[in-house]
Amino acid sequence: MRTWQTNIATLVILVFFLVAPFLFPNNMSQLSDLMIFILIALAWDMLGGQMGYNSFGNVLFFGIGMYIVASSEVILGGFKLAEYTSAMGGNQGSFILTPSQYLIGFGVGIALASIINFFLGLLIGSQFLQMRGHYFAITTLAIGVAAAEVARSIPIIGAGSGMNFPQPPDGVPLFHILYYMGLALVVLFFIFLSWLYKTRFGFIMNAIRDDEDKAESMGLPTASIKSTAWAISAFVFAYAGALYGSAKNFIDPSEVAFPFTTIGVWMILMAIMGGMGTIWGPIIGAIVFQIFKELFWTYLFGWQRVALGLLIVIIVVFFPDGIMGAFNNWKKRRNLQNTAKAKT
């Protein structure tokens, strides 16, 4: 239900994010991370919250997208990928890109990454989404782990020692580009999702979450809906991965590309924290999570993972409904009280 309050709130938040780089010029890397987190939380919630398929394996698309962008930058810059990765240790100096080469490589790479991963998502989804419940979660977790190990053994993308992104040339405001590209997709994806959740497609997704057998026996095309949703989420994950890799400027197979122990868990945590199955939940969750995370990393360094682990346990055990869930409950209670008052 859209009221004028939510419209104004949306507008205020949008304006805030548009001007945020001017307000916090020193925190650009945190801000661009925030955009990436919002994207992956929304994309995860599309499956986990709305469709009931709790996936741990979306980092697969995240990492593949990252590798595609890095390779595209190197290849469109006129270098050979194998030479580039094998020389990675010392002489980065001989692999310098001009700003236009860098931007073209990045742009083409990010488009390629998203589209390739969309189709990869269709392909993988059509098979793995036939599993349900526990087995789906477990299998996707295994896929994420396996992807990191496989990437670790392919020499052309740097194997275990990882792969550097080409150095961004001077004069390219990398984090501003990443931030606004992230924000652009966040806005588009948000509009898309709020439309999608009101269409037949969205209702079928919810039906699958509530009772897949019944949905199927009603004649709903569950299989194709599931893989399409998974492919859309793969598209967004690849885009987010491309941004994340460019921000980190270095790809490590299991820490950055397929980080099943960090991003792979955070994406779920953000969605739960904000409230699964709501459209605002993942966004709020990502913002709150990013603030917590940065506070932990700044003020509790050395103990930051202890704090994060405790936060995970507390949220999962005590607040499974998240912020939006609590808000909705409060609203429901208030409405009940209002109707009770109106009656008397």
Partner: peptide, 14 residues
């Protein structure tokens, strides 16, 4: 089951 995965993951981190 998925809740247990996350909760014990938190314990592992700690």
């Amino acid at each position: 089951l998925f809740v247990s995965l996350l909760a014990t993951f938190g314990i592992e981190l700690v």
